[in-house]
């Protein structure tokens, strides 16, 4: 069985592109294909006109593609600052000097509001903070394309709001964002374009309001869970 089939799309520069779909629709698989964690059996990934299919995640980061994971994986035995420092050192700009790297890392931490925890061990911060650390690390690689996988899962309402604000600021900085999220409210509020996946296939694509009103989307995705989503939003 193919997790993804005949899915094709372009990501325009400097936009926030959302990907939604029910569980098992292939959103995370899509990210793994793009970032080289999984090699596609067919098809290609192009970035800025170059074929980057199957390239290792380290090589992609050097070209300006970074991702976060749904399940956070901080380096628990390092301080928050050191976590981000790794990304600055080995990201697109490959900063060599430690002092410079620390400065850049602190900037990234300020963006996500973690600067006050810079010297705390990454294992000692809360899950919400670890999620923000994950974003800060990806940001610190200085990506041109940033893939965010469910960064709001498990966050409180105000934390989610802050995260949405952060996404806008990242885009203003010139970074394109691909964004997968379960939280419909969050994704509708923040995205410029939305792609709907279902059973590994592309169902619809367009502006948030267009997608929201697309009949097939409502039937396939929202239809079954209308009640729950209404209650939530």
């Amino acid at each position: 069985m193919a997790a993804l089939k005949d899915v094709s799309f372009d990501i325009p520069e400097n936009q926030i592109c959302g990907f939604i779909g029910p569980n098992g629709a292939g959103k995370t698989t899509l990210f793994s294909l793009i970032t080289g964690a999984v090699r596609p059996s067919a098809g290609q990934v192009h970035f800025r006109g170059k074929d980057v299919t199957g390239m290792s995640s380290a090589a992609l980061v050097k070209r300006g593609v970074a991702r976060t994971h749904q399940v956070v994986r901080p380096f628990k035995a390092m301080s928050v600052l050191e976590n981000v420092q790794v990304a600055v050192h080995y990201g697109r700009h490959a900063v060599t000097r430690t002092a410079v790297a620390r400065e850049h890392a602190m900037e990234a931490l300020k963006l996500v509001g973690l600067d006050r925890k810079a010297n705390v061990l990454a294992s000692a911060i809360s899950l919400g903070e670890q999620k923000r650390l994950e974003v800060a690390r990806a940001l610190a690689t200085a990506p041109e394309l940033l893939l965010l996988d469910e960064i709001c899962g498990g966050l409180t309402g105000s934390e989610t709001g802050a995260m949405m604000e952060l996404l806008h600021r990242i885009r203003e900085g010139g970074t394109t964002i691909m964004y997968v999220e379960h939280d419909m409210k969050a994704i509708m509020a923040v995205c410029d374009r939305i792609t709907v996946l279902n059973f590994g296939q592309k169902l619809a694509e367009g502006k948030p309001e267009e997608v929201q009103n697309d009949a097939s989307v409502i039937e396939a995705y929202l239809g079954k869970s209308t009640f729950r989503d209404k209650k939530r939003g």
Binding site: S56, F75, E82
Partner: peptide
């Protein structure tokens, strides 16, 4: 040190 703790996460940071 990053590799020691999580190879995949380290690779994701370049």
């Amino acid at each position: 040190r990053a590799i020691k703790q999580d190879e995949d996460a380290a690779a994701d940071l370049g």
